[in-house]
Simulated assay, not measured.
Amino acid sequence: MTEATQHIEGAPLIAPSTPEHPLFDDVVAACRTVFDPEIPVNIYDLGLIYTIDITEDNVVRVIMTLTAPGCPVAGEMPGWLADAIEPLPGVKQVDVSMTFDPPWGMEMMSDEARLELGFM
């Protein structure tokens, strides 16, 4: 096994976020205003937001997933999320991309979401 292969195999499945960025908390708050229409919990607490990466020039890149690839709002939810984040003061641009790797699982939900849905 080569060193390059070892690096790829050891890479995290979910890209890191930038929680130290001054806009991070506002972006998270905006994410919490978007709901999956089939589940009464916001997409952030559901664990559908994998990465919030904010560049030095305030470009927000979000990597998200859905509870299932066949979700009826799969085509719409990234736009809903971008619409929630773009109006924030200081945000220059928003790019939302979708991934299903790793697949979403109930263990990705926050404790608040589990409580709301009766799993705790």
Results as ranks from 00 to 15, higher is better:
117 L>C: 13
108 M>T: 13
58 N>S: 10
39 I>P: 02
106 M>Q: 10
86 E>P: 01
68 A>G: 12
81 L>Q: 01
112 E>Y: 11
80 W>N: 12
119 F>W: 14
46 L>G: 09
43 I>L: 14
88 L>V: 00
1 M>T: 12
78 P>V: 08
118 G>I: 03
8 I>D: 14
9 E>Q: 13
96 V>C: 06
40 P>T: 04
48 L>T: 03
13 L>N: 12
92 K>I: 00
37 P>M: 03
27 V>Q: 01
59 V>C: 03
14 I>S: 04
65 T>A: 15
16 P>D: 07
97 S>T: 06
96 V>P: 03
17 S>Q: 05
91 V>A: 01
116 E>R: 11
65 T>Q: 08
106 M>Y: 10
92 K>V: 01
30 A>M: 02
88 L>G: 01
120 M>T: 07
107 E>P: 15
48 L>Y: 04
47 G>T: 15
78 P>Q: 03
14 I>C: 10
80 W>H: 12
41 V>F: 06
36 D>R: 08
59 V>S: 07
71 C>G: 05
94 V>S: 00
99 T>I: 15
82 A>E: 06
75 G>E: 13
9 E>C: 08
16 P>T: 02
24 F>S: 04
70 G>F: 15
34 V>H: 04
76 E>Q: 07
69 P>W: 07
2 T>S: 14
37 P>N: 05
102 P>K: 04
82 A>V: 01
84 A>F: 00
43 I>A: 03
74 A>C: 10
60 V>W: 15
50 Y>M: 12
105 G>V: 13
39 I>L: 15
39 I>N: 07
42 N>K: 15
29 A>E: 08
78 P>Y: 00
36 D>E: 03
41 V>K: 05
27 V>K: 00
102 P>A: 03
65 T>M: 05
9 E>V: 09
42 N>Y: 06
48 L>H: 12
77 M>E: 05
56 E>Q: 11
43 I>C: 07
115 L>D: 15
15 A>E: 10
50 Y>S: 10
102 P>E: 08
105 G>Y: 06
109 M>R: 03
32 R>P: 09
104 W>N: 08
82 A>L: 00
83 D>S: 03
9 E>Y: 11
10 G>L: 04
106 M>P: 13
94 V>R: 01
11 A>P: 14
81 L>F: 04
66 L>R: 08
22 P>Q: 02
82 A>W: 00
104 W>I: 11
83 D>Y: 00
78 P>R: 01
35 F>S: 04
31 C>P: 05
73 V>P: 03
98 M>N: 06
85 I>Q: 02
116 E>L: 09
112 E>R: 07
60 V>R: 06
97 S>F: 08
113 A>W: 02
61 R>Y: 13
86 E>R: 02
53 D>E: 10
63 I>A: 14
57 D>M: 02
94 V>K: 00
64 M>V: 07
106 M>H: 15
14 I>T: 09
21 H>Y: 03
52 I>M: 12
